[in-house]
């Protein structure tokens, strides 16, 4: 999933949470269980990418 985010980064920014769940098939629930309190931002940090831009 981290690799997927790196591959789908736009201008160095990580995809939004919805883009990650739609693109990888990992559910929203699983994402919040794996990375509590702000999954998209935590994923961005681990992937070494900028935080996602967008409201969904």
């Amino acid at each position: 999933m981290i690799e997927w985010c790196r591959a789908h980064a736009v201008n160095g920014r990580s995809p939004t949470l919805r883009q990650i769940t739609e693109g990888t098939g990992i559910s929203t629930k699983e994402m919040f269980a794996l990375f509590p309190k702000g999954p998209a931002k935590k994923v961005a940090r681990i992937a070494g990418l900028g935080k996602p831009e967008g409201c969904v």
């Binding site: 919040f32 509590p36 309190k37 702000g38 931002k41 409201c55 969904v56």
Partner: peptide, 11 residues
Amino acid sequence: LVMGWAALGNG
């Protein structure tokens, strides 16, 4: 929905 989702995304 948008603000609630943004809030969840910020912990």
